[in-house]
Design a protein around this nucleic acid. Structure first.
Lengths: 340, 340
DNA sequence: CTTGGCACTCCGGAGACCCGAGTGCCAGCC
DNA sequence: GGCTGGCACTCGGGTCTCCGGAGTGCCAAG
């Protein structure tokens, strides 16, 4: 038995099954893929592949379908990323470049990804922790409530209402704003926080105490990364193509998509932008989603990704296509954020 | 035939059908609702109701189900809003008050509404056009690109990148910021725009021309209400309870939920906060959603609503419950935004 | 106007049946 | 040793039939 052909058979099975969503038999396989051997031979190969746990048959006397392990093998060894067509590239860049807003960029990315892959797309907002502060704005809401608006270099805008135990004056706010910005601009939140901590000391006595409380409140509000988990989902209508098994596929999927925490888990460690991570079926962290796969990658600077994006779909998905689309969108997104 | 009983029968049919999702027959009806008459009598009533187009039978020899017209009658004449239980009220207010952010408030509202009604919930962000400007912040991105951040009284923050045909200086920005804010703070965008239009004239010659272009760009960016349509959707997992007819219920629903424009159409004219609007089945603007109903209302100031919120579900939904929940959430949301 | 009776309809589940695709294995062939 | 054709076997799933039960409409009597 030729090892090479056995792998060709595996590839053919994966491709066929992904395309038709039906168990594939030996006969149709040789017909569709010009393997140059007889069905019987393919059957032998299939038996071997089944022994290795790469494929399985749902019922006796049915065709074979790939197992998670089979997909894994396919993804790792039998596939190269499809290149995007020139037209697709053009579509991507023009679609994304029309955006005038970070919200807009993210929204468009999600749509794009969903449309390219015909799957559910997830895009995470640029992480607060990993981007730098461009500007801090303070707006008095009342004498003891302050709205702090953080404008990040990625264009992300974050706001916090801070309740203060002291009375505010316009003068105080103005001074605070100046100092805050000179201390924090260009820094990351974490480093800015320490820099800000030093601020009160530089002030003269009377204001020092006021500074102390205000800065402390600000720092606390800023470093509360509870909203660091902003994610946007799109293409849920593509779930409709999941096919039949409603209760076991679509419901848990919809539930997961509601829970941003779960989504973040799914995107998981895909925080490096150079590689596309593929999590197949039970490899994922969520038991309920044992028949779904995640294709994800990071975007932003190449060394340390700002955030992740990806698609989620049934294990029987077009991995090469999805991987290519995910990578392409991530790249364009990175360049766009770089410009901004 | 007693008219009053006939309506009781209609009510019973609606309630039963909503609860069981199965056509309801005369016999089970008298059993479950103690109508005090025989099934045969009820059958006569049913025949009359069917003549009036309020109920229908899916097949001969099946029970009856309400028609859209039947639901309409039920909603208009046979129902009073369920009061929320004290526990529910407490849950709502405490859940919403924990929010520290407009985004947070909206997000929580959507979840709350979805959970209360067990349906898909939609909440629209406070309209830009109808709220007032609290503060305008300008941040230089480069010498000829300016980031304008609009902070509205509702806590909504909107940003725009403005490309300018002139060089910016810190001094210019500072002055601009002062003038902008004194002219625009407390105004609505529309009125602010005209006020801003007058600004350049007040400046002295050299700066006047710079002002003119900058202000023009700003006004244009601000009054571009393309993002006025921000809506948030939640509870899509509840679609799973839609039941069987996948292709005809869930897919178009998911597709509609992706399109914010469509959602806005659905919320439609529900811009008054005093009444809860109910759109049943084909009464709605979207053909594909002919078997779904929308329960919506406005929130914000009582005279002119800031925006709308509501739930979308199958025509066979619990109207009294949904209406009550929608109204309750809208009210709490209004008070919260009032405080902020 | 209400009610019991009765004949009629028809949906939908259970069972029987069969076809066809697919398999495993074996013996022969290169 | 690997490939191939042949063959008996399996079994899912579509089709058909059948039947019960829930529901109806109508009618005549109270």
């Amino acid at each position: 038995m030729v090892e090479e052909r056995k792998l060709a058979v595996l590839r053919a099975i994966v491709e066929d099954y992904v395309a038709t969503q039906e168990p594939v038999g030996s006969k149709t396989l040789v017909e569709r893929h010009k393997l140059g051997v007889s069905p019987a031979t393919v059957r032998n190969d299939m038996a071997a592949l089944e022994d290795e746990g790469l494929i399985a048959q749902p019922h006796t006397s049915a065709g074979r379908i790939p197992t998670d392990k089979g997909y894994r093998f396919f993804v790792d060894r039998l596939t190269t990323l499809k290149a995007m067509s020139a037209a697709e590239k053009r579509a991507i860049s023009s679609f994304l470049e029309d955006a005038h807003d970070l919200d807009d960029v993210v929204q468009r990315s999600v749509r794009l990804l969903a449309q390219l892959t015909q799957q559910v797309a997830i895009v995470q907002y640029p992480s607060l922790a990993k981007s730098t502060i461009r500007h801090i704005e303070l707006v008095a809401l009342s004498t003891n409530r302050l709205l702090a608006v953080l404008i990040m270099s990625t264009g992300r805008v974050e706001q916090r209402v801070v309740e203060l135990p002291v009375e505010l004056t316009d003068e105080l706010i103005g001074e605070l704003r100046l100092r805050l910005n000179s201390a924090a601009a260009g820094e990351r939140i974490a480093t800015a926080a320490t820099a800000l901590g030093a601020l009160p000391e530089q002030a003269d006595g009377a204001k020092s105490s006021a500074y102390t409380v205000i800065v402390a409140s600000l720092v606390e509000a800023m470093s509360n990364h509870s909203t660091d988990d902003r994610v946007v989902v799109g293409g849920t209508a593509n779930l409709a193509r999941f096919g039949d098994n409603f209760e076991h596929s679509i419901r848990p999927m919809l539930e997961a998509l509601e829970e941003h925490v779960v989504l973040l888990k799914l995107l998981g460690e895909a925080t490096t932008s150079e590689t596309v991570t593929v999590r197949i079926g039970t490899e994922g962290p969520i038991d309920e989603l044992s028949s779904t796969s995640v294709v994800a990658t990071g975007y932003g600077a190449s060394d340390e990704a700002l955030a992740a994006l990806g698609v989620v779909g049934p294990t029987r998905m077009d991995y090469p296509g999805s991987m290519a689309a995910v990578r392409a969108v991530a790249r364009y997104l990175s360049t766009i954020l770089d410009e901004a």
